[in-house]
Design a protein around this nucleic acid. Structure first.
Length: 619
RNA sequence: GGGGUCGUAGUUCAGUUGGUUAGAACGCUGCCCUGUCACGGCAGAGGCCGCGGGUUCGAGUCCCGUCGACCCCGCCA
């Protein structure tokens, strides 16, 4: 018999047999009882006249012993291989002293088989759930049903279930209604690319899968449902990342007569409930920080609070120092502190330069001791401002003096200001990136990234508009229905860049978990925003006509938020990728390797939809 | 769209400066084994070295292209 071939086995029927226990349940106190277990063969250890089978289901593993005197049972057990599906009828026996297995919960007992039923066999697998080394992800995804049997995946999916249930229960207790919104809806040309669904009835016309139920949930507020939530799939046709899938699940909610604090309170409540499912007691309320602060202190709008913030050390340098160092005096100078890194070799310090990259606009001083030699006073002042401990790594990031030509400004005045802001922002961002890269590299040393350290944060007061360099106009930073700050209304026309939005993000350990805002409920303000965005009344009508009409029929003030369920579960599970907490994820090229999707469809299907596909080369 | 890492047996990997018949472990098949739990012992099967082209007397190894997996940038209102 060659590899892969097996003698034909006689399989048994389940018949009237009923399972009495799960495989992870039995304990010493069950000794003596008659039991029926069902599950998969995790491992077989065949000692000849004595065969051990580890039977596995979602609750755990029980060792089954089959002795030669059990006759038929022993013959069957001899034929059994990995991942066969069995029913074992037997009795629970306390294990002898020396044979207890402390590694499994059921290790004090074993089930002595009286009879074995072969419910199904299993072809030799590319990998098994019992393997100690993990197979390649490509192989895992192709045979996802096997991969999902692995205890770790079972745990992750169970965790996901628990988190969903905890959130549902909490929101229900707070008076939220769970209301479904359509998956087949209208394409909104702004934002991410839509996944389109062709209409058969109207050839050439398309539905779009929702990027979020945004407009529907706002309409539900107009409809008087007061508090809505939904744990809902959303779709975005953009390139993937470890933390981005084309279809993902959001915890979406909206509240009528809402102020931001009310939204914060609800989110803190359900996150507390979700985290308590794994025994983590979250401290609420979460700290808050303005967007502006986040940029200046962390160089990013989703600060990771597990490591110290950056420090502004601009004042440490005398004008003469800056000139010598070719540092732009107009731009910020920031110090990064990474705790407990200890002494670095010359090679490690050079590595920092590589990590920072070759930039025109910014430079890094990675060797503070060298800076100390030439500029002792500045270095002393930097230490005073950044407050590193003796073992901490301290590096400084500053702006480069640019050639005058590159810095020439012919734009109107407000654009000059924008440009200056932009350059400062780039310094902060560059420093922020280096801070994270260093923190990642020296994670072992500072220990702040160990699983279980959950640092939440609200980031508030996002800018209302972003300047679009390519288009030469302002864009909505969040979406065009986000309400501006009441105090900033008067700047809508005079200084759009300074208008703050009533928008907020909830951030955990440097990952954006969710984003929300108080929405515009008044027609007059909505008109001003569209005007600031340079959108003509015709364009407004074409894009959002139905919604603008709805807004006019008694819209209450309202606001809400949406959080990524996948990301929450990923962080709770301590996983590196969303794919570890999504049962059937897609690859980086948006392919489902198990079902092999997407695929071409038949000419007949296309004809019915009025669709012609142009050759790939023509695209 | 751009940059990077990787691709060798079913799986995880090794493979020297380009040089005989491409190795190991696990898995698989057969035999032996009554206390294993990463069971053990003996024997065996299993390879288009991702694919295509090039350089060379000779390519798993060097070069070019291509496909696939992963990570990052762009993108994600």
């Amino acid at each position: 018999m060659t590899n892969g071939e097996r003698r034909t086995l006689m399989l048994d029927f389940l018949g009237y047999l009923k399972r009495t226990h799960m495989c992870g349940e039995l304990r010493a106190s069950d000794a003596g009882s008659k039991v029926v277990l069902m599950g998969w063969v995790n491992k077989r250890r065949d000692l000849g006249n004595l065969i051990f089978l580890d039977l596995r289901d979602r609750t755990g593993i029980t060792q089954v012993v089959v002795t030669a005197d059990s006759g038929a049972a022993h013959d069957k057990a001899a034929d059994v291989r990995s991942e066969f599906v069995l029913a074992v009828i037997g009795h629970v026996k306390l294990r002898d002293q020396g044979t207890v297995n402390k590694n499994i919960a059921t290790g004090e007992i074993e089930v002595v088989a009286d009879a074995v039923r072969l419910l199904n066999d299993c072809k030799p697998l590319p990998f098994t759930p019992a393997d100690t080394v993990l197979a390649n992800e490509e192989v895992r995804l192709k045979h996802r049903y096997v991969d999902l049997r692995r205890p770790e995946m079972q745990r992750n999916i169970q965790l996901r279930h628990k988190v969903s249930i905890a959130i549902r229960e909490f929101l229900n207790s707070q008076g939220f209604y769970e209301i479904e919104t359509p998956f087949m809806t209208r394409s909104t040309p702004e934002g991410a690319r839509d996944y389109l669904v062709p209409s058969r009835v109207y050839p050439g016309e398309f539905y779009a899968l929702p990027q979020s139920p945004q407009i529907f949930k706002q309409i539900l507020m107009i409809s008087g449902f007061d508090k809505y939530f939904q744990i809902v799939r959303c779709f975005r046709d953009e390139d993937l990342r470890a933390d981005r899938q084309p279809e993902f699940t959001q915890i979406d909610l909206e509240i009528s007569f809402a102020r931001p604090e009310m939204v914060f309170h609800v989110v803190e409540g359900f996150l507390k409930a979700a985290f308590s499912t794994i025994g983590v007691d979250l401290h609420t309320p979460f700290p808050q920080m303005s967007y502006d602060q986040a940029i200046r202190l962390y160089g990013i709008d989703k600060p990771d609070l597990r490591i110290p913030c950056m420090a502004d050390v601009r004042e440490a340098f005398a004008p003469a120092n800056l000139e010598t160092l070719h540092v732009d005096a107009e731009l910020p100078i920031v110090a990064i502190v990474i705790p407990k890194v200890g002494d670095l070799s010359r090679k490690d310090r050079d590595e920092i330069k590589t990590m920072f990259g070759d930039r025109k606009d910014a430079k890094v001083f990675e060797d503070i001791k060298r800076l100390e030699k030439s500029f002792p006073e500045a270095a002393a002042k930097i230490r005073e401002l950044a407050k590193p401990n003796a073992e901490d790594l301290l590096v400084v990031v500053a702006g480069n003096v640019l050639a005058t030509a590159a810095n020439a400004v012919t734009d109107p005045a407000h654009q000059t200001a924008v440009r200056q802001c932009q350059r400062a922002y780039e310094i902060y961002a560059a420093a922020g990136q280096l801070r994270l890269a260093l923190a990642q590299k020296y994670a072992e040393r500072h220990g702040a990234f160990k699983h279980g350290n959950f640092r939440f944060l609200w980031v508030t007061d996002f800018p209302m508009f972003e300047w679009d360099e390519a288009e030469g106009r302002w864009n909505a930073a969040h979406h065009p229905f986000t309400s501006p700050h009441e105090h900033d209304m008067d700047k809508l026309e005079s200084d759009p860049g300074a208008v703050r939005a009533l928008a907020y993000d909830v951030v955990l350990n440097g990952t954006e978990l969710g984003s929300g805002s108080i929405r515009i409920h008044r027609q007059d303000i909505q008109a001003k925003i569209f005007k600031a965005l340079g959108m003509s009344p015709e364009e407004q009508q074409a894009r959002f006509g139905f919604f603008l009409e709805a807004l006019q029929y008694g819209t209450p003030p309202h606001g809400g938020i949406a959080l990524g369920l996948d990301r929450i579960v990923m962080i709770l599970a301590g996983a590196e990728s969303l794919r570890e907490v999504i049962p059937f994820p897609k690859t980086a090229k948006a392919v489902d390797l198990m079902v092999d999707a997407p695929t071409p469809v038949s000419a007949r299907q296309l004809k019915e939809l009025g669709i012609a596909v142009v050759g790939k080369k023509d695209l």
